[in-house]
């Protein structure tokens, strides 16, 4: 079943003009497709920065082979929660995380677990593309090199090529792999960073507003890419674009003031939100 945010909302308010917004059409009508089993399970996760609590008791089940979107007004704790999932909060000295987070049933905050190994399994893409000041090739080869994933040069070159292909960047950079990565356009840089994350073959890819610095065409490319990656990975994205969440995600979580207000199928969130705050947010009445 295809759904449309505005039709539903319009229907609620003005009695139903059935205009279909092309913006909100999912690229591959992704939403009916079944999601995989639960990949990450969080229970009562709270985040503190010093004495200030930024996140309150968040419990979600994030499915594998699907895109899960976090939405909510600025400062509501989306990034903080996302950073819990690969323990990037460990790099912030004043941050503390409480509660339990299990990935494939394994507690990722277990004392015995090395966060460095966890981060090899949970890749992350940031809001602003952050390629290293090295060549395009070296950027993608970075992960395989530090984790010793390849035996020799040809294997490494193969893996770089595969990753760039999966990130949809190969055609554009195949002839200039030795050029500086910082010379690419913003959209290309963001896909390069995704290729860099893919190159270590993670199980989960976290993306924190990956398109907010990009133009609509580059955004469309990244969204297409997310939709493809969904077939193999567990994707979690933070976005400020309602339309983007509706287009690419299967599950959506709405955060407000550090609390998880609602977590459900994307369809349900946008068509039948249970909470008034969710409705207000997705219709643009606050936030």
């Amino acid at each position: 079943m295809r759904f449309n945010l505005f039709r539903q909302l319009d229907g609620a308010e003005s009695g139903g003009t059935a205009a279909t917004s092309p913006l909100l059409a999912p690229p591959h009508a992704a939403h009916q497709e079944p999601t995989g089993p639960i990949k990450i399970q969080t229970r009562d996760v709270s985040v503190f920065y010093g004495d200030k609590q930024a996140l309150f008791d968040v419990s979600v089940d994030i499915p594998d082979k699907a895109v899960t979107a976090f939405i909510g007004p600025s400062g509501c704790g989306k990034s903080s929660f996302l950073r819990c999932l690969n323990r990037m909060n460990d790099t912030i000295p004043i941050a503390r995380v409480k509660g339990s987070i299990r990935m494939d049933g394994e507690d990722i905050y277990d004392k015995a677990l090395d966060p460095v190994l966890l981060r090899a399994r949970v890749g992350m893409v940031f809001q602003k593309p952050n390629p290293f000041p090295k060549s395009i090739f070296e950027n993608v080869a970075y992960g395989p090199r530090i984790h010793g994933l390849t035996e020799n040069k040809t294997e490494l070159a193969d893996r770089v090529e595969q990753s760039l292909k999966r990130a949809g960047l190969w055609a554009e950079v195949a002839d200039r792999l030795d050029a500086a990565a910082t010379g690419l356009s913003g959209g290309q840089q963001q896909r390069l960073v995704i290729a860099r994350a893919i190159a270590v073959e993670p199980e989960v890819i976290l993306m924190d507003e990956p398109c907010s610095a990009l133009d609509p065409i580059a955004t469309a490319k990244i969204e297409e890419l997310m939709d493809e990656l969904r077939e193999e990975y567990c994707l979690v994205i933070v976005t400020h674009s309602m339309a983007q969440a509706a287009r690419v995600s299967q599950r959506t979580a709405f955060f407000h003031m550090g609390e998880l207000v609602e977590f459900d199928d994307t369809e349900t969130i946008f068509q039948n939100p249970r909470d008034k705050r969710t409705l207000d947010y997705i219709t643009g009445r606050f936030g």
């Binding site: 790099t91 190994l117 890749g123 952050n130 970075y142 992960g143 530090i146 984790h147 860099r196």
Partner: peptide, 14 residues
Amino acid sequence: PQSLRDGSYAMGAT
């Protein structure tokens, strides 16, 4: 920039 460090840590680098 801190973003470069974050990028590296997020790759699982020590």
